[in-house]
């Protein structure tokens, strides 16, 4: 047979197989794994090498054969160590994380609904919820603007000291809260660097709700920066360019093109920041003044009840904080799951 004829025959055979495969798949038949137009197929075709398709049944046979030769190591679960590592993990999580939280819930539940309600709805407790939530909201609002600007500047601009600023963003996480607390208190006390200037303006920060806001804003600042930053880095410049060629102004582009893309990450950062502010203790108690009904946060109230040996009240208030934390955890999870849609590439 002439060379050209062989080549044409072969191509024609391949084409035929490919078409067969396509019609087979289109008809909804299960095309077996390993089925390839260049390999042989269960469909009868007379040309080509007689390779047999890899079906699930054959795979199972092969696996069983390997298992018989080499022992179970090469079966589905190849790696060792599951009992050991999973055992350590489950025991540790049970003893260190779940046992104490369970004990707290048990203690709070043993109060009975009437007593529990009396404690958690007492005037002082409700006032502490109000102070905590309002201050956390204000601190989060500040962080929204400042954190967003900080992330924008770090990602979009190149200037001397950019890397130092980038590293400094994490300082509030690295600095122990008690240290942050005394530093902020000294800064904002009426004889401090900031306090002096602010009191000339008639503003008192230390020992007022403003102080709580300052402490909360400081300790939760990194959350918004660190959730927005990666999304901002990944933004597609082409969208901005398109908007620009269509004649949109910078402000419009930011609001209508960038903000919708950043929005999920911003929301996730906001909820993390708010949750952290709700639970913050160390930095706040130094600067807050801690007056009941005025500047007493919920965490401090739980602590004070403990020092008064009023354990049931402490358990009840702590359980409210725990529920708030779980609620925020759920919200954050939902928001971050949605935020992911915009960070997933390709």
């Amino acid at each position: 047979m002439p060379k050209a004829a062989i080549s044409t025959n072969f191509t024609a055979a391949v084409d035929r197989r490919r078409n067969l495969w396509k019609t087979e798949a289109a008809a909804g038949h299960d095309v077996p794994r390993g089925f390839h137009p260049f390999a042989a197929s269960p469909l009868t075709i007379d040309e080509g090498p007689a390779l047999r398709p890899v079906t699930d049944r054959r795979m199972a046979l092969a696996r069983r054969a390997i298992q018989e030769i080499r022992g179970p190591a090469l079966a589905r679960r190849i790696l060792p160590g599951l009992p050991l590592t999973l055992g350590i993990t489950l025991v540790y999580v049970a003893v260190i994380v779940l046992l104490p939280l369970g004990a707290l819930i048990f203690k709070a539940a043993s109060l009975g609904p009437a007593d529990y309600w009396t404690i958690v709805s007492s005037d002082r407790a409700v006032a502490s919820y109000r102070v905590t939530m309002l201050c956390a909201a204000a601190a989060t609002a500040f962080n929204l603007v400042f954190g967003m600007a900080l992330a924008w500047v770090i990602v979009r601009y190149r200037f001397p000291g950019r890397r130092i600023v980038d590293a400094l963003v994490d300082l509030p996480f690295a600095l122990p809260t008690a240290v942050a607390g005394i530093a902020l208190t000294t800064l904002f006390a009426s004889n401090g660097w900031f306090g002096g200037a602010l009191s000339a303006l008639g503003l008192k920060v230390a020992y007022t709700p403003l102080g709580i806001i300052v402490a909360m804003a400081f300790t939760s600042l990194p959350f918004i920066v660190r959730t927005v930053q990666p999304v901002l880095e990944e933004l597609d410049g082409a969208l901005e360019e398109a908007a620009q060629t269509l004649g949109a102004s910078d402000g419009e582009i930011f609001r209508k093109v960038l903000l919708p893309q950043l929005f999920p990450a911003l929301l996730a950062g906001l909820s993390l920041s708010f949750a952290r502010s709700l639970g913050e203790f160390g930095a706040i108690i130094f600067i807050a003044g801690n007056q009941p009904y005025e500047t007493e946060i919920t965490a401090l109230l739980a602590f004070i009840r403990l020092e008064e040996y009023d354990y049931p009240a402490s358990a009840a208030i702590a359980s409210v904080m725990l529920m708030a934390a779980f609620l925020m955890l759920a919200i954050t999870n939902i928001l971050q799951t949605r935020a992911l849609r915009y960070t997933v590439k390709g």
């Binding site: 939280l101 639970g279 203790f281 739980a302 602590f303 403990l306 702590a318 725990l322 934390a325």
Partner: peptide, 10 residues
């Protein structure tokens, strides 16, 4: 997500 105070109390 749990406040350190809650952890201590627990």
């Amino acid at each position: 997500s749990v406040s350190p105070i809650v952890a201590g109390v627990a």
